[in-house]
């Protein structure tokens, strides 16, 4: 019995971090964007474009960290398009987000065509389990170097939003645009900057897709993970630290299929792979009712009004 349960457990735990890291970055990016009162569905496009940019940057420069920089830049720029266009009169952020999502994936496919074949240098894992004799433990504890950065960003975001001038302004803009205007703040400027910063953070998720796991670039890389991460923000009630736990939960769910396969349980491989999607549906059904508003939701979100 232990021969099956322990390896699966380790694989799920390792998978939670490996698969969950892109979720973490995208949900943190969306969390910041939504705290400023705007929804960016385009983060799915940001994820795909930035993973292409990361791979291209690493391939051309030979350094994976330059690839990470390129991913953040690409994410910020694409999110910036969303931010600026949503500031125009009578532009709906949901519709614009879908357009940006398609623009991002389209651009990535177009620019990324020559990048499908070659190998780029990938990020070296942090080997936490190197002293262990178990190969499974070693595999589970070889951690994406971007993951600790994600944890740091989650902690920093939670602290910044509660304790700094910058965080209070973002939240005020997200909760009452009128109050912010009365203070002489430019609502559009704050939202555009928050959207761009959110895009840069989400770009890190793209980098961890193409430079760590799976560690290559192709057009099916994201398979909707960006959209799942946006749903995660609702589950996390717009709290950065809750985004961390939610991402790990979803990462673990995503790793369940491969983990079972690795110990020889193949029966329902595709069914287990569908667990994150089913979980998303379940969470949204449980979290939302037509009879009340969600606790913790920024009041200015277009879906709240």
């Amino acid at each position: 019995m232990n021969d099956i349960v322990l390896p699966v457990l380790w694989a799920v735990l390792g998978g939670a971090i490996r698969v969950g890291t892109p979720f973490l970055f995208v949900s943190l990016g969306e969390c910041l964007t939504e705290q400023s009162g705007r929804i960016n569905l385009g983060l799915e496009g940001v994820l795909v474009l930035s993973s292409m940019a990361a791979f291209g940057g690493a391939y051309l420069s030979g350094s994976p960290w330059i690839g990470v920089m390129a991913a953040m830049l690409a994410g910020a720029l694409l999110a910036g398009v969303h931010g600026v266009l949503c500031g125009l009169r009578r532009v709906n952020d949901i519709a614009m987000g879908i357009a940006v999502m398609m623009l991002g994936t389209g651009l990535a496919f177009y620019l990324g065509k020559p990048l499908i074949q070659p190998q780029a240098p990938t990020l070296a894992p942090i080997m936490l389990g190197s002293t262990s004799s178990s190969a499974q433990l070693q595999a589970a504890l070889s951690i994406n170097p971007l993951f600790p950065l994600g944890v740091l960003i989650a902690l920093a975001l939670a602290w910044l939003l509660a304790n700094t001038r910058w965080g209070l302004i973002v939240r005020m803009v997200g909760d009452s645009a009128d109050a912010a205007r009365a203070q002489g703040l430019s609502v559009n400027r704050v939202r555009t900057l928050a959207t761009m910063a959110g895009g840069a953070i989400a770009g890190l998720g793209g980098a961890s897709l193409s430079l760590f796991y799976p560690g290559s670039w192709n057009e099916l890389l994201s398979s909707g993970q960006g959209l799942i991460a946006i749903a995660l923000v609702i589950f996390a009630r717009w709290r950065p630290l809750a985004c961390l736990w939610a991402s790990l939960l979803f990462g673990g769910a995503g790793a369940l299929g491969p983990a079972l396969q690795s110990v020889g349980i193949n029966g329902a491989y595709y069914l287990f792979n569908a667990v994150p999607y089913a979980l998303t549906l379940l969470i949204l059904v449980l979290a939302c009712t037509p009879y009340r508003r969600l606790q913790g939701a920024p009041s200015e979100l277009s879906v709240q009004r």
């Binding site: 304790n163 700094t164 910058w166 209070l168 939240r171 005020m172 009128d178 109050a179 203070q183």
Partner: peptide, 26 residues
Amino acid sequence: FTVVPGMTVAENLLLATGELPGIVRW
């Protein structure tokens, strides 16, 4: 009402001054 509905009374009172410190020592 011009209060920010989702932020605490303390945060609302602090925001009203219009002179926010960079880091708030709560």
